[in-house]
């Protein structure tokens, strides 16, 4: 069930990708995603494939594991692709009842499939190789400039890291409360929609009560340990750029330049699609 979702989980390792500064990885993921949508040509996809192949290989994460992460979002992808396939207006190539497939539809659908797959692979490499904490750190430091616009970056990052700490605890607790109510004859698995929703009350009320109690306890504990927001705080693990990080930025720049060059100088005829 919930535990089968590999997307968004950390895959322990010590590869150079793992050791990169989280800001670099965040930036890299962004560059990669933008490139997918900004340069939609066969040659661009080939370059993106090459780039992701290099990153996956250096990260030493088994390809099988990465592909497993695609499974839960597969349905979502399928729907998107089908929508594009059937609902894009254009030159009809095939018609059945009220549904028609157009040449443009096919093209869009393929684009969409490739983009989504790569988007998910790209972002899961980020989460596979970056601990949630360092990801939060990266966000906090990397997005620090947003403070100028009065975005409470530190608070958001703190919220994220607390959420990360308590998600497993609350998942365990959900399981426990479900069992406890099942021991009282509750039935979470049968009946129609309304009955099922009603059956959730004995689960959700205790879960909320517990979450609030934990939140209250945690707030006290944080206060007693001198927490008073981000002002005047120092960091135990400040982010420092190293040589490999600079190298990674250069690689990103090269990737972007190549993309641009491909767009203007290499023309693979689109109609091969």
């Amino acid at each position: 069930m919930l535990k089968d979702i590999t997307l968004g989980q950390y895959y322990p390792g010590n590869s150079i990708i793992h050791r990169l500064d989280p800001r670099v990885k965040l930036m890299g993921t962004m560059v990669f995603i933008v490139s997918l949508f900004a340069f939609g040509s066969v040659s661009a996809y080939l370059l993106a494939t090459l780039a992701i192949a290099v990153v996956v290989t250096t990260s030493k994460i088994p390809l099988k594991y990465i592909l497993k992460g695609l499974k839960p979002v597969f349905v979502l992808m399928l729907i998107t692709v089908l929508f594009n396939l059937f609902l894009t207006p254009g030159r009809t190539v095939w018609k059945f009842w009220k549904l028609s497939i157009t040449a443009e539809g096919i093209r869009f659908a393929i684009h969409m499939a490739v983009r989504l797959t790569y988007l998910i692979i790209g972002s899961s490499i980020l989460t596979f190789t970056t601990t949630p904490n360092s990801l939060t750190d990266g966000l906090e430091t990397g997005l620090g400039f947003l403070n100028v616009f009065h975005v409470p970056v530190h608070e958001i990052a703190m919220m994220m890291s607390i959420a990360l700490r308590f998600i497993p605890i609350l998942m365990d607790e959900t399981d426990k409360i479900m069992r406890a109510q099942e021991a009282r004859g509750a039935d979470f698995h049968s009946g129609g929609l309304i009955r099922r929703v009603k059956a959730m009350v004995p689960l959700l009320v205790p879960l909320f009560v517990s979450a609030f109690r934990r939140a209250n306890d945690l707030a006290l504990a944080m206060e007693s340990r001198g927490y008073h927001g981000g002002a005047g705080r120092t960091k135990m693990k400040p982010l420092v750029y190293r040589r490999r990080d600079v190298a990674a930025y250069i690689a990103m720049a090269v990737y972007l330049i190549l993309m641009i060059l491909l767009k203007f100088f290499v023309k693979i005829p689109v109609n091969i699609l």
Partner: peptide
């Protein structure tokens, strides 16, 4: 269960104790 008070969810004691028999 351990810490069984965490499974309480009703608004009154009587209602909560009734949950089992009603099931």
């Amino acid at each position: 269960f351990q810490y069984p008070e965490y499974q309480i969810f009703e608004t009154t004691v009587l209602k909560d104790v009734c949950f089992g028999p009603k099931n």
